[in-house]
């Protein structure tokens, strides 16, 4: 902290963090196509994935514009390698069972919604406009994921055990969302993005309420993984990109 940060470079970085997180989560959710436990969830999962991919187009589109090197949202999505991705580690976690997918969604939504509320107040109107649009969609994502976490946490013995297992596995990946680095701090100071420290109170309250109603126990260990938003990822991301980027990489001359 305290290092001099170029604001445009920081904004590019911040926008990639947003767009890469929605891209990677949207992709993960889309892997469920046709495999959900009930038809209503097939529809909901496709809908959430669709919203997240749409948000990716906006965030990465703006990132390319801010960068000014003629990279489009597609160039950024399909022609960067793992170390250039800035998504949170949480969203690249594999789908696992429906409980893991749902818990990952809830823990992310509980951050995403207040984050977008903060971004909607951005001094940069381009950022604010995207955040307002995305915020409407994410309000629904959070409503759905919180509701299902409660119903399955406080459901049958097996559903409770599965939701607790998902929480135990994913919890150590949540810390990164609310720990600012120099980029986050510079953007907060410039009034472009919200102060991540401030999000923690909202996130904690929401998550504690929902998990308590779901009769689930927050793990005691405070250990948290980090590095995703600085480009240090798990092994899982490379495999996802290998699948996702296959066509544009194999046929670089083609347009689709």
């Amino acid at each position: 902290m305290g290092a001099v940060v170029d604001l445009d470079a920081a904004l590019f970085e911040g926008l990639c963090r947003l767009g890469d997180s929605t891209l990677v989560l949207g992709h993960r959710v889309s892997e469920w196509c046709g495999q959900a436990p009930v038809l209503e969830e097939d529809i909901a999962l496709a809908n959430v994935a669709l919203d997240l991919i749409g948000q990716t187009q906006m965030w990465l589109g703006l990132a390319g514009e801010v960068e000014g090197r003629e990279r489009t949202s597609d160039t950024l999505a399909y022609h960067r390698d793992v170390w250039d991705f800035r998504n949170l580690l949480l969203v690249e976690r594999p789908n696992g069972d429906f409980g893991h997918t749902l818990m990952r969604q809830f823990l992310f939504d509980a951050w995403h919604q207040p984050m977008l509320a903060g971004l909607a107040q951005s001094r940069d109107t381009r950022v604010a406009e995207i955040a307002v649009k995305a915020g409407k969609e994410v309000a629904y994502h959070l409503e759905r994921s919180a509701d299902l976490v409660i119903r399955l946490g406080d459901g049958s013995g097996e559903s409770h055990a599965r939701m607790q297992a998902a929480l135990d596995t994913l919890w150590p990946y949540t810390g990164e969302m609310m720990v600012p680095d120099a980029t986050d701090a510079a953007l907060a100071e410039a009034g472009i993005m919200p102060d991540l420290n401030g999000l923690r109170t909202t996130w904690d309250a929401l998550v504690q309420d929902v998990l308590a109603e779901a009769t689930l126990t927050i793990p005691e260990s405070g250990f948290m993984h980090k590095g995703g938003k600085q480009g240090q990822h798990s092994e899982h991301l490379g495999h996802m990109l290998a699948t996702m980027q296959f066509l544009p990489r194999a046929y670089p001359d083609a347009t689709w």
């Binding site: 892997e31 097939d42 496709a46």
Partner: peptide
């Protein structure tokens, strides 16, 4: 319902964000 599967086979490999979004809307 079964018809989602052959398309789901390519949602994860759709060649652009726009194509991915359109295909998601379709299977939805």
């Amino acid at each position: 319902i079964v018809g989602q599967l052959p398309e789901g086979n390519w949602i994860t490999r759709a060649p652009s964000l726009e194509r991915k979004a359109i295909l998601l809307a379709k299977v939805q």
